[in-house]
Write a protein that binds this DNA or RNA. Structure first.
Length: 399
DNA sequence: CCTCCACTGGAAACCTAGGCTC
DNA sequence: GAGCCTAGGTTTCCAGTGGAGG
């Protein structure tokens, strides 16, 4: 659509959309990979060096990458992999690169499905055993003499949820492969401590090489933002105050470039919506609120029905309450909808999950003779909650 | 120091949807 | 199409627990 050659139509399009603020908003999306990555030369060089043996048909070492969110781990990894693939295109080698975010593909099976997809085979989304899925992947790699690099992003989630079985199998798979094919693993993690949950054999194999990404400083964030501003916005639309604030807010957390860019994008959208000619610092402040609100809103919407009911049961109470009270109210709500209520054990589990999501606060406290229970209170604004819950048709009768 | 409350949270059994094989 | 298998969610069962009140 966008590469229509007719110059007039693109001029008209732009005029119709009244693009005073944005020039190319794609540069602010999280998947965007810039042509040049600043302040990450060391890491790029290092990862490049580690992976380069593949150009000589040798197996590169496995690699673990650490760093907080928004420090460029993902973008640098994808950048190096892209460049590597570009280079191998000129050769006859069958190099395949797979990238999976294991927080998104949250089970072992889904991870395998995506890895399979990256080497060109399709697995059904259910029905196969893990070992069968694994077998198909390794057989395909052997048969086609593929040299595969699999990047597992947010690998700590996979380990936390499903243990290190899959990693163990993946690291071991090379033992049964001929010289011509292999799997190299890149593990990317926010959490330095996740190593503790790994089997020693898995760790030693996965940790052949290690790279750490340190947080960006506020000045570095500012430079990154300035460059994105030039690509994404029209000239002189973004005030310096706005950029400084974005960099400052993101820097005060932990040098999170993704957050800085998100703030900038949403601030731009807000400015555009209110018809302002420029993006000012107040838009950035509004953006911070709006992002938080959206995060909560989506968190609630993606909850299963009983999770929503539990949340509603929490919100319908005053003061902090214990699990028993919440459960009683939950049962009443479920009955009103004609749903079979889940057990208290399950609701206790759901409450823990809601706590983890930051939607409620549910620390376990002991009240002596009054027993030991969770002390549950809502951690979000009721209007956001209500807005998100009323979107769900099945909950309509409760409002 | 002991009791005893009101759960917590681990473990295992059970259920369901859906693909596979024959 | 029957019978088998698995992942993921739920139920069942139950030992364990922190601390106010005795």
């Amino acid at each position: 659509m966008s590469d229509i050659k007719d110059p007039l139509s693109s001029i008209f399009d732009r005029a119709m959309k009244n693009q005073v603020i944005f020039k190319n908003k794609n540069a602010l999306r999280s998947e965007y990979i810039p042509n040049e990555l600043h302040f990450r030369d060391d890491q790029i060089t290092r990862i490049g060096q580690i992976l380069s043996p593949i150009l000589n048909r040798d197996k590169p070492s496995n690699l673990l990458i650490y760093g907080k969110t928004g420090t460029g781990k993902t973008v640098v990894t994808r950048y190096v992999l892209n460049r590597l693939i570009e280079r191998t295109k000129k050769t006859a080698m069958d190099v395949k690169v797979g990238y999976v975010n294991t927080r998104v593909a949250s089970t072992e099976y889904r991870v395998l499905t995506e890895l399979a997809h990256s080497i060109g085979i399709i697995l059904p989304f259910t029905g196969l055993s893990i070992s069968e899925a694994f077998h198909r992947i390794t057989e395909h790699i052997k048969a086609t003499q593929t040299k595969a690099i699999f990047a597992l992003d947010e690998i700590d989630f996979l380990v936390k949820l499903s243990g290190d079985n899959l990693l163990y199998e993946l690291t071991r798979a090379n033992e049964s492969m001929p010289q011509t094919s292999f799997i190299t693993l890149i593990g990317i993690s926010n959490d330095l401590k996740f190593k503790d949950n790994l089997d020693a054999r898995v760790l030693s194999s996965l940790n052949e090489e290690e790279t750490v990404f340190s947080p960006y400083t506020v000045d570095e964030l500012k430079a990154i933002l300035l460059e994105r501003v030039n690509i994404a916005f029209n000239t002189d639309v973004v005030t310096e105050a706005a950029i400084n604030l974005c960099a400052g807010m993101a820097g005060s957390e932990h040098g999170d470039a993704r957050r800085a860019v998100d703030l900038l994008r949403v601030a731009g959208e807000l400015a555009e919506r209110e018809g302002a000619g420029e993006v000012r610092d107040e838009h950035v402040r509004q953006a911070a609120q709006s992002i938080e609100r959206d995060r909560i809103f989506e968190g609630i919407q993606s909850l299963p029905i009983h999770g929503k009911l539990t949340l509603l049961a929490v919100s319908r109470g005053r003061e902090p309450e214990n699990t028993g009270h919440i459960y009683a109210r939950y049962i009443a709500l479920a009955k009103q909808l004609g749903l079979e209520p889940l057990t208290q054990r399950r609701i206790s589990g759901l409450l823990s999950e809601l706590d983890l999501l930051g939607l409620i606060s549910a620390p376990v406290i002991s009240q002596g003779r009054m027993g030991r229970s969770k002390k549950i209170s809502l951690a979000i604004q009721t209007d956001v909650l209500k807005a998100a819950l009323t979107e769900d048709e099945t909950l309509k009768p409760l409002f």
